[in-house]
Design a protein around this nucleic acid. Sequence first.
DNA 1: CGATGAATGGAATTTTTATTCCATTTTCAT
DNA 2: ATGAAAATGGAATAAAAATTCCATTCATCG
Lengths: 274, 274
Amino acid sequence: MTEQTAPVSLEEFNHRLAEISEAMPKRLRQCAEFVAQNTDRIAVSTVAELSAGAGVQPSAFMRFCQLLGFSGFSEMQKMFRETYAQKWPDYATRLENLRASGADSPSALLAEFVEAGRLSLENLASSIDAGLLEEAVNVLAAAPMIHIVGFRRAFPVASYLSYAFEKMDIPAVLHDGVGKLNPRHAIRKGDVMIAITFAPYSQETIDLAAYARGLGNPVVAITDTMTSPLRRIDALTLAVSEVDVGAFRALSATLSLAISLAVAIGAKRDQAVQ
Amino acid sequence: MTEQTAPVSLEEFNHRLAEISEAMPKRLRQCAEFVAQNTDRIAVSTVAELSAGAGVQPSAFMRFCQLLGFSGFSEMQKMFRETYAQKWPDYATRLENLRASGADSPSALLAEFVEAGRLSLENLASSIDAGLLEEAVNVLAAAPMIHIVGFRRAFPVASYLSYAFEKMDIPAVLHDGVGKLNPRHAIRKGDVMIAITFAPYSQETIDLAAYARGLGNPVVAITDTMTSPLRRIDALTLAVSEVDVGAFRALSATLSLAISLAVAIGAKRDQAVQ
DNA sequence: CGATGAATGGAATTTTTATTCCATTTTCAT
DNA sequence: ATGAAAATGGAATAAAAATTCCATTCATCG
């Protein structure tokens, strides 16, 4: 009376999982959640390991397998082991495969961007000036209000920072240019600004940063080179260089820097409060 | 008196195998032969299966494992399973250590995020379904208009896509929720939507995607697991899992996927025009 | 052509892992 | 609140797999 369907492929499996995982009791949903996020481990793990990962008892995991239509864990694992061969190759091989799938196929492109991202991250880690970064964190952690500005390619970074600050209850405004309002009046003396811009530098960002600097406020710049125009206004400059793919440039390194900055500021503030 | 070396990586393993397989007795050479040709099965097979495949007795296979320097088959298999599995398990621990050792300086944090970003990119490369990706590109390249929706943590991704499409002169609208206008009327039959959301999934995104789907329009989802609610509305789901640092999660992999998608769409459209 | 030591096959044993069962707790409708 | 049904945890049991052991075979050398 248990089985209705027994998924025979990954797609079927995922489909079924999505289909029924809503209507599951707590523990079983935990299993679904964990499995969805760690599908690749099923083939090489034991019930004990997986159930521990999901934070449930082995017996619960067992029931989960049965709910999906398998007779038990072994049968489910068997399905994954059979489809395992393709997933096996390691990162390098896999990247090769993606590349090989046709010069300008989406997957080949993805492989390029992944590689570029990894290189950018490496660069970032080795080129960042720890002293400058720490100084920026200190200045920002002490700020009564943080203003964030960044347009065009820098806007995703700005909005991500804004999101992170909101999550951590750190007062921050994102100057997003909506409605072409003049945002300058929101900037008070003592506030700190994070200005983000890359070549070709957007004038609005530079202007706003210059204005803030004119008030004597500190400005932290996230930009692409040390010779960026933000340098001229004496901003605390954090330089990130992204490796590009053809004419395109991703944001992996920049965003990693941004999130680190945000979390470090959050940590610092918490310390200060205690 | 058994062990001399115990290989700890695939390279070491292959090396050792080549090194000693010359001087092996018949049955053990059969094992070596078979293993060299079916390395990928080791992680997911039993001694019985492998020995049968090699045409020898389980006990012979056992001796083969020991000759290679392992205590037995289990130890050898463990090596293969670990090589395969993604490396995040000890992440929480590492962060603990970081905190404990007082090394939660901004640069240490940055190092963590960089590492997490690199792992996420690796995972992305090895988990993406090339077929699905291509399908998504095809659907989007043919769209008269692309609608992009993503809030909160997904918003940077959405805005980045919007920027990329603008650069490439691809008609696209970013539904940014400004002014709480009801954006549904902008969606026409035949348009395609890119919906981006991560747990905890934002209702607005799901609703809008469901609405578009209700019109019969295709929806491409960028989300975190295969069990995401977007799956339910039968969206073309591209799953990306980001490795997180403590409670925080960057966007390296997601953005790389997004930019690849955008550029691939641009390329495809250019082709079509010519 | 034997004697000796390495190699082998297969069964016995041990260990690990999956699965079931049931007492207890939680949830929910009444 | 109260009882019925569903869900859960944990231990008991069954099954499967790994490992060892030893009698037998095979190759080698005097």
